[in-house]
Amino acid sequence: MKLGLHLPQLTWPNGPAALGPDLATVAKAVDEAGFEYLSVMDHFFQISRYGPPEREMLEAYTTLGFLAAHTSRVKLLTLVSGVIYRHPGLLAKAVTTLDVLSGGRAILGIGAGWNEEEAKGLGFPFPPLKERFEQLEDALRYVLQMWAEGDDAFSGKHFEAERLLNSPQSLQRPHPPILIGGSGEKKTLRFVAQYADVCNLFPGPDLPHKLDVLKQHCAAVGRDYDEITKTVALWLDIGENGEKTGQLLDELGQLAELGVQAAMGWIPGVPDPRVIEKFGTDVTPAVEKL
């Protein structure tokens, strides 16, 4: 089992002027504490789970590039990029750039997108759900072709391109891993089986069922279910003084028994690096044995 630190909110005590130094400190601590993943939101307004929309939110790929410069081993991604926010050519180029400059540590996290408030607020198109899923499948086909050899044209339902030239290519070959977020049984998990290397699900009573559905989709498209890394979004809380460490390890153990290979989540107390350092001594060594 592996852990990932997710940074869903950046309303930190020292304010926006200190976000650069504070993020650098957090990134260094994550790298040294044995975390496998470091992820950021891909939103433009804060989402209601973490606060009002006016709270601080940084653009995702600029932030990941900054984090790449302050880390050496942790894998970098968004949880997750809404397909409506970037043309797939721009998205593939951004992730390729991140992969090259990080030494091969980029992951493409992607989904259909859901935040109508920020889309309408900033003037992004927000088509109906059916069309967003069509765009998602187009984007998945597009980025995979852009990371492949050659520079042929692309034709999809919503995107057309004459030449998918990508130079330099990603360092990870055949391509950076693709993570699809979401647990919709008809389309999202089918897309995972067909296109993704990693899935991100929610832990809960229906998780075994969702994994069974993914297994069925894999069988239908001839994909090895075991090739896909199963991750969950989980609140990583060990308590102010570590008093909840055992409870978290028990929960992670139960997830590991289901076949989950990584948990990614927010740690209460961040940006204080001491809480991350405590994970490095008390949690990540134990989690690696699960």
Rank of each mutant, 00 (worst) to 15 (best):
84 I>D: 04
190 R>M: 07
130 K>D: 10
152 D>M: 02
15 G>V: 07
159 F>G: 04
199 C>N: 07
158 H>M: 05
40 V>C: 07
185 E>A: 13
231 T>K: 11
218 C>Q: 08
117 E>Y: 07
128 P>A: 10
177 P>V: 10
256 A>L: 08
105 R>I: 05
144 L>D: 11
24 A>T: 11
32 E>G: 00
218 C>H: 09
225 Y>H: 12
260 V>N: 09
3 L>P: 02
290 L>N: 13
220 A>S: 15
92 A>T: 07
232 V>P: 01
117 E>H: 07
135 Q>R: 15
208 P>R: 10
272 D>G: 06
259 G>C: 12
179 L>Q: 11
160 E>S: 11
227 E>W: 07
162 E>S: 04
53 P>T: 05
26 V>Q: 06
82 G>C: 15
269 G>V: 01
168 P>A: 05
157 K>Q: 11
262 A>T: 12
213 V>K: 13
146 M>N: 01
285 P>L: 07
174 P>H: 04
46 Q>Y: 03
168 P>L: 05
277 E>H: 06
87 H>C: 01
127 P>V: 04
177 P>K: 12
79 L>M: 14
104 G>T: 15
231 T>Y: 10
23 L>M: 08
181 G>T: 10
158 H>S: 10
137 E>K: 12
147 W>E: 08
150 G>W: 08
75 K>Y: 12
91 L>R: 01
182 G>K: 02
153 A>R: 09
41 M>T: 14
196 A>N: 10
32 E>W: 00
220 A>Q: 14
175 H>K: 05
196 A>Y: 06
70 H>F: 08
223 R>E: 11
192 V>K: 00
66 F>Y: 15
69 A>P: 09
48 S>V: 13
241 N>K: 10
249 L>H: 02
145 Q>D: 06
229 T>D: 04
